[in-house]
Write a protein that binds this DNA or RNA. Sequence first.
DNA 1: TATGTTTACATAGTCTAACTATGTATGGAG
DNA 2: CTCCATACATAGTTAGACTATGTAAACATA
Lengths: 110, 110
Amino acid sequence: MLPRDEIPPGTLYMMILKTLARGGEMHGFEIANSIQRLSEDVLRVEEGSLYPALQRMLVKGWVTAKWGTTGDNRRARYYRLTPAGRKQLEIELSQFERVIGAIQRVIEAT
Amino acid sequence: MLPRDEIPPGTLYMMILKTLARGGEMHGFEIANSIQRLSEDVLRVEEGSLYPALQRMLVKGWVTAKWGTTGDNRRARYYRLTPAGRKQLEIELSQFERVIGAIQRVIEAT
DNA sequence: TATGTTTACATAGTCTAACTATGTATGGAG
DNA sequence: CTCCATACATAGTTAGACTATGTAAACATA
């Protein structure tokens, strides 16, 4: 499964939303690092996946962004969940469970 | 998650392989119906997804196909798992568990 | 006998989204 | 001063699931 892409299409939104729900205001690199660390290095969020995804999420109104500075004085774009984003997270979580559960029924059938 | 496609890209191969591993020789419609039924109607395998996937799997050497007739006298193409397909199934199953486990660690983190 | 439904396969074209590759810019370490 | 890590961004590629459409035959039923 997924030989080319490690991250199943669609699930990146869910993980970013969840990360922001947990961590409050975060910038892109922080989000990517958090996902990578929590997944125990199974999931590597490439920059070419991360930033386009964040742009799309801005357009969809799931997050807002503002420029700021990091602890070590670098410019970074800080993202924050909107109420729509929080709602979307709930949708995605339940969809994920529903679909993964269905797949597991198929692959675990005897 | 996955608003447009119900079946996460990549997982269809795995489910087809598993279905053939369980059912022996089957034709396309049987495979699709089996997946749909076992998933309790959560996953609907569209014909436009199924047949192209089976073609790709033929090219990859995961399955062989031969024409035959169904119980009610219709022509149908019967698919059978090759040793390479069986190996691929094992790969996909372990990849799936690995990736889904990683995603769950991310979305279940507190 | 004609019509519609179901089974069964196939392909063309669309679309999402994750990827690679590349580019910009800055801070800190050596 | 150079190198590396951080941080963001975009162009172009690719896989694969989808919709829409077409073929054809078996069967039910009016």
